[in-house]
Design a protein around this nucleic acid. Structure first.
Lengths: 343, 343
DNA sequence: CTAACCTGGGAAAGAGTTTTCCAAGACAGA
DNA sequence: TCTGTCTTGGAAAACTCTTTCCCAGGTTAG
């Protein structure tokens, strides 16, 4: 056989029309084609099982149906929830989602961005707060702009400050509200399980918490701050460190639920009861972690919708050329893990 | 400008060689090119920032660097763990992963498979037990074979019986071992939170449990079996149903951890203490669910490695033409949620 | 010394689509 | 009847890369 594939030319021949006519029918060009021929072409395509060669289309159109999705770790429920929202939208649009995982490596990120550029992806959604490291950030901006110059759209989730559409949770407000709740419950000595200092999400949540304390005339003591890496095990280890330092806090704010989970495990092992002896709060309201005992006081973010919204922005054609920023407010959820401190 | 992109021809011109020579240098053809020219071409490419047009390559080679990954739901930690293993391997190989989510819809699955075929994907990894529905299964087999005939490789995870490489957990053995453990603890009346009857994974786990009971001369009473849909909420609701039916069981086996989580929530709400009043066991050992209280007795599956292994099989070139099946044994983990029944 | 053989490099033929440009035919208005 | 306007269909260029075929020049063997 000459080719294992059915080509548009074969469809055209089978329908007795020219290649161009067949193409016009298949992808509904502006030019009119008579009903009779149009039907004939469609029937032909159906009959022969025609499936357009995507690479040929991409080559001719200089744009593919691929949408890139960059996350740090797809097994982290924070990212997989957002990813779900993104894929929901892209698949609805008949597009194909490319999943790239970076593990917070600027180099892996570059590799994937280059691949998406090479494939003439239609859009890219970047998820997850980014290192504020100067160099890698300017590199990222250059790559984003290169992609945009070849006609691609970019949207970011939780990654402010880039030349792209952005969906960001109001981390500051969420953490502030959470702090106010703890203060209202009577807590005066706080410990915080902060995130990597160079990630905006981590910084904003820390700042928000801080500013509520300051506003209430309270202080966060230096030895009551530890930094984790946003993972469960990081939270576990950092909490152990905190305990070794002999914290006198009555409550612990972990800047994300995943670390809070590790914190609770460490506390349980250390024989410290939550919330009787220590209140714990998290951030995100990760769906998979809603069944912890005690249930976690946290700030709910609509992760899935955030992803969906970002994908929408990256793919709608209304607002070419402008960058929109959407702020999402979290909703504070008071659950079992926080209560007024024992006297 | 004529084109916003650097083409190989431009690289060749800039290096003072022919297009063919440049191509031979770039993708290391069998034909030798002198060191001098080779270096010149590489320097040229570097200098001009050459990035090969992936669609042109795909068109010419009739094979792309895309690897498809089909899961039911990327937000389900079972799938996201496996997905992590798969992407680890594909990204190591410099390939691009396409994520397709099917939500157990045969139609969505077909759509994605067609897209992957259109893109001349190099391989596809299908994850998740599949409906045994006759029709959709033959359709799937046809689609798989069509893809293989165009030169693509297919691997499956937890989806036996397809014409492809397969990595499958030994669900039967795992459930049997779990049942033996419960029997050894003294349990005699069992309840089971089974999965969708048409999914092989669910059936095998149910069968394995059953056969251990039979071997011990025990019976599983009809009213002690309920079916869930493998989701947390499904487990929750099915457990409520079980309670309404007035189960007399001393232990409950949920055929996956996610449903076990819902079960524990329903039990807690109903005021039934685990494990004091009722033992609970799950299956999978989902990483995110390891911090439940009480910790869940379960069968650990190396989800990430399973994904990685499947990707390897789909991408190695050693074993073209043959279909290999790898069975993975689970490891039983006795934790807090099971204990001998009260007298 | 000549025939056979290598080696490196260039020209050109695809790969399958989209899209522009042009021709031919139909038809209405003058 | 002629001109101008539509409508429809076809030919061909363009997109960028891979790969085959062939040639020129040099090397080796007989």
């Amino acid at each position: 056989m000459s080719s294992a594939y059915v080509t548009l030319e074969q469809v055209a021949q089978h329908a007795g029309v020219s290649l161009a006519t067949a193409s016009r029918v298949i992808n509904g060009s502006t030019r009119q084609v008579s009903q009779r021929l149009s039907d004939k072409v469609k029937a032909s395509a159906q009959e022969l099982g025609y499936l357009a060669n995507a690479s040929a289309q991409t080559l001719a159109r200089n744009s593919s149906s691929l949408v890139g999705l960059l996350v740090h770790d797809i097994a982290d429920p924070y990212f997989s929830s957002i990813a779900r929202g993104i894929t929901r939208h892209t698949e609805e649009q008949g597009l194909v989602t490319v999943l790239g995982t970076t593990y917070r490596s600027a180099q892996k990120e570059s590799t994937i961005l280059a691949a998406l550029r090479a494939h003439r992806a239609k859009a890219i959604v970047l998820v997850g707060s980014r290192s504020t490291d100067e160099d890698s950030n300017t590199t990222l901006v250059r790559e984003i702009e290169a992609f945009q110059q070849q006609g691609g759209r970019v949207a970011c989730v939780s990654q402010p400050g880039l030349p792209a559409d952005t969906v960001s949770p109001d981390n500051h407000a969420g953490a502030t509200e959470l702090a106010r709740h703890l203060i209202a419950q009577g807590h005066r000595r706080f410990a915080i399980l902060a995130g990597p200092t160079n990630l905006s999400t981590a910084r904003e949540r820390l700042d928000g918490f801080h500013s509520a304390l300051s506003a209430a005339g309270l202080e966060l003591q230096h030895h009551n701050i530890v930094h984790g890496d946003f993972t469960r095990d990081g939270g576990y280890e950092s909490t152990q460190r905190l305990l070794r330092l002999g914290s006198d806090a009555t409550c612990l704010f972990a800047v994300n639920d995943v670390m809070a989970t590790g914190a609770m495990a460490a506390l349980r092992e250390a024989g410290i009861r939550v919330p009787e002896e220590l209140s714990v709060a998290g951030f995100d309201d990760i769906p998979t972690l809603r069944d912890l005992t005690p249930s976690l006081t946290t700030v709910r973010l609509p992760l899935e919708q955030m992803g969906e919204h970002a994908a929408q922005m990256a793919l709608d054609h209304e607002h070419e050329g402008e960058f929109r920023t959407v702020h999402v407010q979290g909703e504070i959820l008071i659950r079992e893990s926080t209560r007024p401190p024992a006297l």
